[in-house]
Computed example of a mutant assay.
Amino acid sequence: MRLLPWTSDTGMPCYLSTDDPDSRMSRLADRVEAELLDSARDVLGHAKELLRGQAPLRRELTFAGAQLAAALEDTLRIAKSRGGRLTPEE
């Protein structure tokens, strides 16, 4: 079972039951993972830039914190999914 990089409408984890890493759904999940990781890199870059500048406003920090939390949640889900797919030799 592969943990997918998205959740259901109710926030529950979604899984894919396949051993084919080249299936249509597996390729879609790979693309979504890549997009989420790219987005997390962008969010991190913007947050670092915000913190390097003049003292940010509270609303800027709140927005950055919310974006960082969402990106971290996505990244942790991807890490868990990828870790679950590792073979013992890796």
Rank of each mutant, 00 (worst) to 15 (best):
M1A: 12
M1K: 11
R2G: 00
P5T: 03
T7D: 09
S8L: 02
D9G: 13
G11Q: 08
G11D: 05
G11N: 07
G11T: 07
M12G: 12
M12F: 11
M12Y: 11
P13F: 05
P13C: 06
P13A: 07
C14K: 13
L16I: 03
L16M: 08
L16V: 05
D20C: 04
D20Y: 03
P21L: 10
P21E: 11
D22M: 13
M25V: 14
M25S: 14
S26D: 09
R27K: 15
R27F: 02
L28C: 07
D30I: 00
R31V: 05
R31H: 10
V32S: 06
V32F: 02
A34R: 15
L37M: 10
L37A: 06
D38P: 00
S39C: 03
R41S: 12
R41N: 12
R41H: 10
V43R: 02
L44G: 12
G45H: 05
H46R: 15
A47Q: 04
K48V: 14
K48A: 12
K48N: 14
L50M: 08
L50G: 04
L50Q: 08
L51C: 12
L51P: 07
R52S: 15
R52D: 13
R52W: 09
R52Q: 14
G53F: 08
Q54P: 10
Q54W: 08
A55L: 12
A55T: 15
P56C: 07
L57T: 13
L57A: 15
R58P: 03
R59T: 14
R59H: 15
E60N: 09
L61R: 13
L61H: 10
T62K: 12
F63G: 04
A64Y: 02
G65F: 01
A66N: 12
Q67W: 02
Q67K: 09
L68V: 13
A69S: 08
A69C: 02
A71S: 13
A71M: 04
A71T: 07
L72P: 01
E73F: 05
D74F: 00
D74E: 06
T75H: 03
L76V: 12
L76Q: 15
L76G: 01
R77L: 00
R77A: 01
I78D: 02
K80A: 13
S81I: 00
S81Q: 02
R82N: 07
R85L: 08
R85H: 07
R85W: 01
L86N: 04
E90G: 03
